[in-house]
């Protein structure tokens, strides 16, 4: 849940910024020097970011050009690792799997918006209880979530296939059939991240002035029309924020996949994510140089996708 790549994009305005008050003059780019004080205030965070994020990224970048032994001692090999990566079919497959997973998780955002809207209905009883209920999967340990879903998905004894059998459908082995597996994991990922969307979007909904709705009602707008013409445009900044976070989290898929699929899974090779391959190369096969190259690939892909998201926000995000 970090906006790690936000800083790499270098966009001046954060997505959740409050609107700038309109003044007579167009806002001028600030050139005056504020002194060293502001730097002092951000120093603790800055040190953390530099020490725990930026420096490791630089190191990983360096490692990706080396062949690193299991106990350190690296040797510079130029672009060898990147060449291996281009020729490695598993990496391409993993990229596709990661994209499928991310798209499924993104599909949960409209659902989260609808649910947030329902939970925020004025006069709803137990509203905060529902909010807690929806948020719980998000804060639950991924491995615990995965264990429960493993049982639900179990091909022979799982409740999902039992329910399907009641309506005469012979369900597949959800987590161990290539193709099905990554979708099954994606559905869990979507379910687990709904709560996050509901909380963020719910907060945005509360900030919409009720006067808009009153005015719309006077003009005879239906509830659906109010939703699409008032609610959706006004929550786009938050939608944008949730989208960015979901995409980044989606690309970092590892723990859910690792825990749901298990080690004995015949579909594992066809269902790996990029981070899973990274883990396997770094810690099982001890090829840390190659793993670093995969790490750089993940960084670049997330960077590119996030960059285009920021480019596209002009087309659909409304900052009042």
């Amino acid at each position: 849940m970090t906006l790690r790549t936000g800083s790499t994009v270098g966009e001046s305005r954060a997505p959740v910024d409050r609107p700038v008050p309109v003044s007579a003059r167009p806002p001028k780019k600030q050139t005056s020097f504020d002194g060293y004080w502001p730097w002092l205030f951000v120093l603790p965070t800055l040190l953390g970011v530099l020490g725990f994020y930026i420096w490791p990224i630089v190191q990983t970048g360096y490692l990706s050009f080396t062949e690193t032994g299991p106990f350190g001692g690296e040797e510079f090999v130029g672009l060898d690792n990147y060449q291996t990566m281009l020729a490695d079919g598993n990496v391409g497959q993993a990229l596709i799997n990661t994209l499928i997973y991310t798209v499924i998780v993104l599909a949960g955002i409209p659902i989260a918006l609808l649910m947030a809207n329902l939970v925020n209905q004025p006069g709803l009883r137990f509203a905060s209880f529902y909010r807690v209920l929806f948020f719980m999967p998000y804060i639950a340990m991924p491995t615990a979530v995965a264990l429960v879903w493993r049982m639900i998905y179990n091909g022979d004894f799982g409740i999902l296939n039992w329910m399907l059998s009641l309506v005469g459908i012979d369900g597949p082995y959800w987590t161990s059939t290539p193709g099905f597996a990554i979708v099954s994991v994606g559905i869990v990922g979507m379910w687990a991240s709904l709560g996050f969307g509901i909380i963020i979007l719910g907060a945005a909904l509360k900030n919409i002035s009720p006067e808009y709705y009153e005015a719309a009602q006077l003009d005879g707008a239906t509830t659906w029309k109010q939703f699409t013409s008032i609610t959706v445009p006004l929550v786009t900044p938050s939608l944008f924020f949730v989208t960015i976070i979901s995409v980044i989290n989606g690309f970092q898929l590892f723990d859910l996949l690792y825990a749901i699929m298990g080690q004995y899974n015949p579909a594992l090779v066809q269902s790996q994510s990029l981070v899973y391959i990274f883990y396997n190369q770094a810690f099982i096969q001890n090829d840390k140089g190659y793993a670093a190259a995969i790490g750089m690939l993940i960084l670049v892909v997330i960077g590119i996708v996030t960059f285009f998201q920021f480019q596209m926000q002009k087309k659909w995000v409304n900052y009042v």
């Binding site: 004894f157 082995y173 987590t175 161990s176 059939t177 004995y264």
Partner: peptide, 9 residues
Amino acid sequence: LQQLSDTPH
């Protein structure tokens, strides 16, 4: 193998 993956041996 699928059955053995869903329910360990």
